[in-house]
Design a protein around this nucleic acid. Sequence first.
DNA 1: ATAAAATCTCAAGTTAACTTGAGGTAAAGT
DNA 2: ACTTTACCTCAAGTTAACTTGAGATTTTAT
Lengths: 148, 148
Amino acid sequence: MLNEYDLSVGQVATRCGVKVSTLHFYEQKGLIKSLRNQGNQRRYPRDVLRRISVIKAAQQFGISLHDIQQAFSHLPNQRTPNKDDWSQLSKTWKNQLNTQINALEDLRDSLEGCIGCGCLSMTSCPLYNPNDTLATKGDGAVLLAKPK
Amino acid sequence: MLNEYDLSVGQVATRCGVKVSTLHFYEQKGLIKSLRNQGNQRRYPRDVLRRISVIKAAQQFGISLHDIQQAFSHLPNQRTPNKDDWSQLSKTWKNQLNTQINALEDLRDSLEGCIGCGCLSMTSCPLYNPNDTLATKGDGAVLLAKPK
DNA sequence: ATAAAATCTCAAGTTAACTTGAGGTAAAGT
DNA sequence: ACTTTACCTCAAGTTAACTTGAGATTTTAT
């Protein structure tokens, strides 16, 4: 039986479409792990491929490496993550993803109804500045453009 | 009749919920413009508020300042942008937004069907590495995690 | 047995989008 | 008039997510 840790950085990099330096970087950030061979070169178990796919996928919908690392920290340390482990992870992100999709839809609709609309005064346009309630009071303005 | 350029940086900043330094920065990037009063202080026309709202909105769906600047460069230079001008802008972005929403939906569905699924081998999982076609050939693998 | 290709470590550089700070002027409040 | 706030400019710092480069060692290919 082969050693489970049989992939080199170069192989992983090629197969994942990332640079070797990225793998070093991810390792440094605690996102992936490796063992070393006799010559001190990294050797990866196959599940690193899935990890990296998940990292890339998560990044696509705006999750920071830090948050990905957090999520990964709930994966089992000693054994290879299985179906349930990944499933758990995906549930959290699915919610986030849905939230984000909804936000974008709202934004799209506001853009449509708003940016191109006639309400160039500030009284009623939801796209308008969050803190700008016509410099008076009254909080009719919705905060779409609110920075986190 | 009042001068059209009557807002100070501080006012704009407060009303838009951004820092003064951000406005300086945006101006430097060519995203907004101002005139100066006698004492060399910036004075903004009211439509800067809309511009900034639009910047913030566009950023929300991942458009870079550079691309926003590009889009703004199609706005009229001499007059205040009107309904049609903004409408034009929103059309482009609406498409982008829809594309993005679809991508996220695909991703969400892949996550669901994939991350938590049983296909822990690399043969069929669409979430898997783009360049990893089982290290053989055959390009059955879909590239979801492809970096731009 | 070499030479070429992969790796390793560590430091420094890169881009985006801002923020902070220093030193100085202008405007506003009392 | 005086003091406090608001502004101004310009340079440098910050965070995320990597990339690049230098100098040295390992593996692999011929």
